[in-house]
Simulated assay, not measured.
Amino acid sequence: MTTTPLDPRRAREAVNEALLEIVPDADVASLGPDDELRQTLELDSMDFLAFARRLSESTGQPIDEYDYDRLTTVRACVDLLTSRR
């Protein structure tokens, strides 16, 4: 499947929006680009899967199970979304 990569600003917005759907009270504005998402936001496995699914749905970018280990930080998520071809 060929997809159009997102620009970094839109990718960051998509990550923030997906995180807020899973953790509504999260302060995503203060989340650093290299903060570990699962640890910082205390995401359990179900929360993480919901985040990955929501991020994929909202961006139209496929995020498969083998991509999950790349979704560690905001920067890593943005890099994944902006590198898709």
Rank of each mutant, 00 (worst) to 15 (best):
F48E: 07
R84C: 02
L81A: 02
V23D: 11
R53V: 10
R70L: 13
E57M: 01
T73G: 04
T4Y: 09
L19E: 08
T72W: 01
L43T: 10
D47P: 06
D79T: 10
R85E: 13
T2V: 12
V78M: 02
V28G: 08
D27H: 08
E13I: 03
L55I: 04
P62L: 07
A52C: 15
T40G: 00
L31Y: 09
F51S: 12
P62T: 11
P33G: 01
D67W: 12
L71N: 08
Y68E: 07
R53G: 09
A18G: 05
P33E: 08
M46Q: 09
T82R: 04
T72V: 13
Q61L: 06
R75N: 13
G60W: 07
F48K: 08
P5W: 13
Y66N: 14
D25A: 15
E65Y: 05
D64E: 14
A11P: 04
M1Q: 03
L31S: 05
A14R: 01
V15M: 02
S56I: 11
E42I: 04
S56E: 10
E36T: 05
L37P: 04
N16L: 02
A14N: 02
R10F: 03
F51K: 15
L20K: 10
D34N: 09
R75T: 08
T3D: 04
L71W: 07
L6I: 15
D69E: 15
A50E: 15
A29I: 00
D79V: 04
D7Y: 12
I63V: 15
Q61F: 01
V28N: 05
P8D: 14
E36C: 04
V74A: 02
G60T: 06
M1R: 03
T82M: 03
I22T: 12
L37Q: 07
L20C: 09
R9P: 01
V15G: 07
R10T: 14
L31K: 00
V74S: 01
A76M: 01
L41E: 05
P5N: 15
P24G: 03
S83E: 09
R54I: 08
R84N: 00
P8G: 03
L81W: 04
T3R: 14
R84Q: 07
E57G: 02
R12K: 04
D7L: 13
L43W: 03
L43F: 06
P33L: 03
P24M: 09
L6N: 15
L37H: 09
E57W: 00
R75E: 14
R75A: 15
A50M: 10
R84V: 11
T4P: 05
D25K: 14
P24N: 05
C77N: 01
V78I: 08
D64L: 14
D34W: 01
C77Y: 00
G60M: 07
T4R: 13
S83C: 01
S45A: 10
P8H: 12
P24S: 08
D34P: 00
I63W: 10
S45G: 14
T59V: 01
V74Y: 01
R84G: 04
A76C: 00
S45R: 10
Y68P: 09
G60A: 07
D25W: 08
S45Q: 11
A26F: 04
L71F: 06
Q39K: 04
R12V: 02
R70Y: 07
T82K: 03
T82H: 07
A52Q: 11
E13G: 04
D64A: 10
D69V: 15
L19C: 12
T3G: 03
M1V: 10
L31C: 06
D67H: 15
C77L: 02
A52M: 10
P5V: 14
